[in-house]
């Protein structure tokens, strides 16, 4: 029974006076970005590059489904305190890699660690309790629970989650109130505070993404892993989601995200890891990745760095479905396996 009430020592937005609207989407991100860029300045742009302060280190992680090798990562390190993007064509093994790292799937071989703790064969809930929390590509909110209940569920170390303590409210009522306060703060930050009493199932797709991210923060994670946070989100909400992801870095968290939206990748990530056919084929800063021949061949396509004008942007938003990295696939088919 999960009654171990060890609070995660992670720095969190709620711990200090930084709560409230200060961490809204438009917060200046220069300091966090600059620090992150400085930390990564000396790291060579090559697959498996060693980082000065890695939070996750993975070695020889392999997973095959039948004859297909979905993931075959030799060595990869994720730098602490920065935003790392994981990109690659469909079927490159990004989500499978996510599942392996978080214990939702078991690899054929390999070892990986989080903060120096080996996570090999660790159950997914234990991974989450260590401070490595993920979201899902297809958003998983609990639709028959209210928004607030969804948030409260995220809190770790709840005494009332033990069977024997559960009927005795005086044992857990106080803690529940504290969690509720924290949940409300996070909901306010994600602009969901008006929806508190609604069933989560009544939220729109974008709001569900926000709720899922906010709920993950209730766990007080050190590393937040977002699987396609922008998929199916409208442009206005995209901007605010971008701000939220940046604010996670401001608050001292590490972010690893899978994304197809190259604008977003360029905008917020400090480091980019490119996967294709299960392997890490390139690593580097966003700018160096955009110029990398292998990446262009495998994923981006030749005209990826041509700036999109505002008008084209509008057309793109009106006509193209999500998940299209540049939005100009009409006259420039990408080399993706379907």
């Amino acid at each position: 029974m999960p009654a171990d009430a060890t609070p995660n020592p992670t720095p969190t937005p709620e711990a200090g006076p930084t709560t409230g609207p200060t961490t809204g989407p438009t917060t200046g991100t220069t300091t966090g970005h600059a620090a992150a860029a400085a930390a990564l300045a000396q790291v060579p742009s090559e697959p498996g590059a060693a980082k000065p302060d890695p939070i996750v280190i993975a070695d020889n992680v392999k997973r095959s489904f039948g004859g297909l090798t979905a993931v075959d990562v030799e060595h990869v390190e994720i730098q602490r305190g920065v935003i790392t993007a994981l990109i690659g064509p469909n079927g490159a093994g990004k989500t499978t890699f996510f599942n392996l790292l978080t214990g939702f799937d078991q690899p054929d071989s390999g070892d990986w660690s989080f903060n120096g703790t080996s996570l090999r064969k660790k159950a997914s809930h234990k991974v989450a309790r260590l401070g490595m929390v993920r979201t899902f590509q297809l958003t998983k909110v609990l639709s028959k629970l209210t928004v607030l209940e969804n948030m409260r569920l995220g809190a770790t170390g709840q005494r009332g989650e033990s069977f024997w303590a559960a009927p005795l409210k005086f044992l857990w009522g106080g803690q529940e109130d504290e969690n509720t306060v924290r949940a409300r703060e996070l909901l306010a930050r994600f602009k969901l505070d008006g929806k508190e009493k609604d069933f989560a199932g009544s939220l729109s797709g974008g709001q569900r993404k926000l709720l899922e991210m906010a709920r993950a923060l209730m766990v007080r994670p050190e590393l937040v892993m977002l699987d396609e946070p922008m998929a199916g989100v409208n442009p206005a909400l995209k901007q605010s989601l971008l701000g939220h992801v940046k604010s996670l870095r401001e608050d001292g968290m590490t972010v690893l995200f899978v994304e197809h939206d190259m604008d977003m990748v360029r905008d917020i990530s400090d480091w980019v890891i490119v996967m294709a056919q299960g392997k890490v084929i390139a690593e580097g800063t966003p700018d160096s990745i955009m110029a990398d021949e292998r990446v262009i061949d495998a994923y981006l396509g030749a005209h990826h760095d041509v700036d999109i004008t505002e008008m084209e942007r509008e057309i793109e938003q009106e006509h193209l479905e999500y998940g299209d990295p540049m939005g100009d696939s009409a006259h420039q088919p990408r080399e993706e396996e379907k």
């Binding site: 609990l142 629970l145 569920l153 409210k169 857990w172």
Partner: peptide, 28 residues
């Protein structure tokens, strides 16, 4: 008493989506 507690909340969440509950650190 049980079902209004956080314990009951975990059960109701499992009914809906086990993986989401697992991703939040609960031993489903």
């Amino acid at each position: 008493l049980l079902m209004r507690s956080p314990w009951g909340r975990v059960l109701r969440s499992i009914r809906e989506d086990e993986e989401a509950v697992r991703s939040l650190g609960k031993n489903v």
